[in-house]
Amino acid sequence: MTVSLVFFYLYAAVAIAGALGLVLAAKLVHAVMSLFATLFATAALYLLLGSEFLAAMQLFVYGGAVTVLVLFVLMLTSPTEQAPSPTASRTRLVAAFLSVAFFAVLASTVGGATWAPLSEQVHTTESLARILFSRYVLPFEVAGLTLTIALIGSIVLAREEPDDDVGEEAC
């Protein structure tokens, strides 16, 4: 049992516990906190994969921005979760069965395959930058545009007073 394996199991345990907490926690705040734990553990796993840039991004984007955003919305809407509806328990049973079956299928597929061992030569942030700004520069720009459009969309959706005369004139 290598050191990396030990760390893997440690991080994996945190991630799984966080995921379970996210799904099962009674209070939404706890769910968000559990999400944060999972995201943090995933960042650690990225480090284990030798991708420090991804780990940093994971912390910035998910751990920072997304979690804080969700918490803000939680504060803004102050939702109260109702009691499960009568049919909910059966739905949960079916969903649980489906999820387990899905996992079984995935795991059996994965288990049947063999892959090369982790190579020593680990790709660096530099190679990532090289590929992002050369071969994938167009998708990169499109992704930026998508983000901008999504932001504008969010503002329009979440605006206090929806303006009735938005479409000024259809040419």
């Binding site: 739905t91 079916v94 969903a95 489906l98 079956a101 899905f102 299928v105």
Partner: peptide
């Protein structure tokens, strides 16, 4: 969605 997942499975 549930049915969709079941169908995919």
């Amino acid at each position: 969605l549930l049915l969709l997942v079941a169908a995919i499975l």
